[in-house]
């Protein structure tokens, strides 16, 4: 991560907000801090908050860059705020948003998996279970992952980048609860195309990293996905049928064309 980006954010946050970088993407840098942006009572040594920062891009005209950053930061924040209000959906809570500086604060989720298996996203969790790939815990977790995606789609939202790193598992009362993170490409959408692409992207992610177990894993995910629509009678059945049909079409032609159109 470039020193320049770090210097910018440190200057912006002031020394009152110490940060540790944890991830760098094409568009955003993610930091960890123990300081809550405004509620002193929630800042303590072991507290954890995520700061997602979209640094200015030098190759863009400054005013265009500011407008784009503002737009994307607001868009991600709005979608997180909306989704947090849906009881069935698990997403990190939005804590604060500064669209002028491209900065959002979000609830930290997850933990470090035992035996150095890394952060508790779905990808690392599946690796951790590779010795006993079809155990009941894995099945339960994957069905729940499918339910989360089902809920998201049922509410007419799409994720836009549904990889196994963007599903974070949080332990709640001895069970893993999947949370969807990173709504940077998320949108409100009634289009079956967007939903079909979401499902396809996740299916590909499972196949490419856990190929030997992928059939069963994808089946469990789809089982959870279908559960959600099954709870909504005829309307649910119809929507499910349309979505699955498009998923099939997306799979047949590959993801490419959808990315162009």
């Amino acid at each position: 991560m470039s020193q320049e980006v770090i210097d910018q954010i440190v200057k912006y946050l002031t020394p009152q907000v110490p940060i540790t970088p944890i991830s760098q993407g094409a568009e955003a840098v993610v930091f960890l801090t123990n300081v809550h942006p405004y509620d002193i009572g929630r800042s303590y040594p072991d507290a954890k908050y995520i700061i997602k920062y979209r640094p200015p891009k030098k190759y863009r005209h400054p005013s265009i860059d500011r407008a784009l950053t503002k737009h994307r930061t607001l868009s991600e924040s709005r979608i997180l705020a909306k989704l947090s209000q849906i009881p069935e959906l698990h997403v990190p809570r939005l804590i604060a948003c500064d669209p002028y500086n491209g900065c959002i604060w979000i609830e930290y989720l997850g933990e470090n998996l035992p035996n150095n298996c890394g952060f508790s996203n779905l990808k690392n969790y599946l690796w951790m279970n590779a010795d006993d790939p079809y155990n009941a815990d894995v099945e339960k977790t994957l069905v729940k992952v499918g339910q989360q995606i089902g809920q998201l789609h049922w509410q007419d939202y799409c994720h836009g980048d549904l990889t196994t790193s963007n599903v974070v598992l949080s332990r709640r009362g001895g069970e893993w609860e999947p949370f969807l993170i990173d709504f940077g490409l998320g949108s409100a959408s009634t289009l079956v195309e967007d939903k079909g692409v979401d499902l396809y992207v996740l299916e590909r992610a499972i196949i490419s990293t856990h190929s030997r177990f992928a059939d069963k894993y994808n089946m469990w995910i789809m089982q959870g996905f279908k559960d959600v629509f099954g709870q909504h009678g005829k309307v649910g059945d119809k929507k499910l049928k349309d979505t699955l049909k498009r998923f099939e079409e997306v799979r047949l032609r590959g993801r490419k064309r959808s990315m162009l159109g």
């Binding site: 946050l13 009152q16 300081v35 942006p37 405004y38 800042s43």
Partner: peptide, 9 residues
């Protein structure tokens, strides 16, 4: 009395 970390002024 309260203060906001980023806005100590």
């Amino acid at each position: 009395t309260h203060s906001i970390p980023q806005f100590q002024g």
